[in-house]
Design a protein around this nucleic acid. Structure first.
Lengths: 132, 132
DNA sequence: CTTTTTGCAAACCCTTTGCAAGACA
DNA sequence: TGTCTTGCAAAGGGTTTGCAAAAAG
């Protein structure tokens, strides 16, 4: 039983807070590595994974692409812009009754669900409205 | 505008129908390749992708793992067993109102959503009940 | 004959892993 | 001290791509 308070752990969690907008592990790595060149990529991946497992941060699994991390840890849904790749929070109430329905329909013991939206973000909507 | 009726295309779609239970592209490849050793892996990936884009088959994006393909093309949700990896259909009504809610909450123009359940399949539930 | 599709191998992205050295408690 | 964590580089899973040859329309 551990979770040691290493320098890297702090650096990484701070970087995540600073980046704020759902960065990928690699984006966190870039930010961290710029300030602290000695920190390795594997450490960033491992540490983000641990923080997420401990519930310190959130991990957002993106359908196609790389996982993204969220300095906020409470459960909520996300949208991804299919045009620019940006990911944002979707603050709607959690669907707490679907699990039960799915359990009945499938015979599985449901442990969780993940809901991801795809769409066009406000900025890209504007760009599409006024083509090049 | 194409979609040429190649031998491979037929073979691949047939294999998918035969495998039925949400195989990965690689599983389709194995099945196809066994009967038709000349068919390459890239062709299987490309063809499944095209079929899915055309709406001929369904593509199930799995949170962590490889994409899975579904000989059925109508929209429905899926569960993945976190113990054995198996994927099954979840026949509950589609959530047609969440997109609207998400749109209001996020400012995005929502085009689709994907809902994936995680749980333990009936078989694995039994195995857990009677440990080794 | 033109255009798409194929097969191959190499490349690609994202992530994990083995291992020895280093840091924490 | 004993154990967890780091850094590196290599390996891994899944998928895509460049290219020349083959097939479809």
């Amino acid at each position: 039983m551990s979770a040691r308070n290493t320098v890297q752990r702090q650096i990484i969690q701070d970087a995540l807070r600073t980046l704020a907008n759902h960065p990928t592990a690699d984006e966190v790595y870039d930010a961290v590595h710029e300030e602290h060149p000695s920190v390795g990529r594997a450490t960033v991946y491992r540490t983000l994974g641990r923080l997420a497992d401990e519930g310190e941060i959130g991990r957002v699994r993106i359908n196609n692409g790389a996982d993204r991390f969220d300095h906020q840890s409470f459960a909520h849904y996300h949208v991804r812009c299919t045009s620019c790749g940006r990911v944002d929070d979707v603050m709607i109430p959690l669907l707490d009754n679907v699990d039960e329905a799915a359990e009945k329909a499938s015979g599985y013991k449901i442990t969780s669900h993940s809901l991801q939206f795809d769409g066009i973000c406000p900025a890209c909507q504007r760009n599409e409205a006024s083509p090049a």
